[in-house]
């Protein structure tokens, strides 16, 4: 029983970490809380669902299509919504506001186009049969989620820390103007970051859609609160922090639901968020920058 609980916590925590990964990456490099992230998340899931259902593409192809599709959406939407604000060096809150309007606009559009009802993947797309592994019983997709999260987090981390492009990314995050003077293609890095984080969002949406076998226009919004809690607790822009905070939040929620009360579980994320604001405003590892004068 306890092992099963721990496993459930690991799955839930991985989903939170996965959702937060691209979210915190965008903030780290572009200094924007991009609420459009919730839209990319749902859009990825819809694209994959469409590919499986209408185009009869095998699941791996649908996942690829969903991820690439969301990346394209991410780059296009960034160009539409944020490029002008970036060029005029508008205040940070302007870009937050524009993505707020954007997410309302696009989510409502999606709702109008596809309807609010929950859609499911066709029966043959993936086996939902539970596998028994010692004391554990879990669906294959849950193992896949855990594996994917660890691979992706490591990959993104190494990409940023070890590659030339990663160094350019860090330079832009630090000071875009200086980076441009040093010959970094800032526009390219901005596009890369938007595309990469939207791709991560779309991929996360597909995995979560498969896990719950439910795709719905507002699926991103319902994860948003947890996403916020994770990126604030982990420290804005801190990828390692997001992973630890995501797993921690999953553990806390599952344990609260299992041993305290399932209603109280809903309050865990927010209480943790407020606590983090009081106690560790700089994030778990304390190096996330707040405001630089």
């Amino acid at each position: 029983m306890f092992v099963q609980q721990l496993f459930n916590a690991l799955v839930l925590g991985s989903v939170y970490a996965l959702f937060a990964l691209g979210f915190t990456l965008t903030f780290g490099v572009l200094r924007v809380i991009n609420l459009m992230y919730g839209f990319y998340f749902a859009a990825g899931a819809y694209l994959a669902l469409f590919a499986v259902q209408e185009l009869a593409v095998p699941l791996w192809g649908a996942v690829a299509l969903g991820v690439v599709g969301s990346a394209v959406l991410g780059v296009v939407c960034d160009g539409l919504l944020l490029s002008r604000l970036r060029a005029t060096k508008a205040p940070e809150l302007s870009s937050l506001m524009v993505t707020l309007g954007g997410v309302l606009l696009f989510n409502s559009l999606m709702n109008l186009m596809f309807g609010a009802e929950v859609r499911r993947f066709p029966a043959g797309a993936l086996s939902f049969e539970a596998i028994t592994l010692g004391p554990l019983r879990a669906a294959p997709i849950q193992f896949i989620i855990i594996a994917v999260v660890f691979v992706l987090v490591t990959a993104v981390f190494l990409f940023i820390a070890r590659t030339r492009i990663g160094a350019a990314l860090r330079a832009v995050a630090e000071r875009p103007d200086t980076a441009a003077l040093m010959g970094v293609n800032v526009g390219g890095i901005v596009g890369l970051t938007s595309g990469l984080s939207a791709a991560l969002a779309g991929g996360a949406g597909i995995l979560v859609g498969l896990n719950l076998n439910a795709v719905q226009p507002y699926m991103g919004e319902s994860l948003m609160l947890r996403g916020f809690a994770v990126i604030i607790i982990g420290g804005l822009g801190d990828i390692r922090g997001a992973l630890v905070a995501g797993l921690g939040l999953g553990l806390l929620e599952v344990m609260t639901a299992g041993y305290v009360s399932s209603t109280l579980k809903e309050a865990v994320a927010f209480s943790a968020l407020i606590l983090a604001l009081w106690l560790r405003p700089g994030g778990l590892f304390g190096w996330a920058s707040g405001k630089r004068a």
Binding site: M97, L100, G101, G102, V103, L104, L105, S108, L109
Partner: peptide, 9 residues
Amino acid sequence: LIFNGLIIV
């Protein structure tokens, strides 16, 4: 809602 979002943008 679409209209409200558009206005903000």
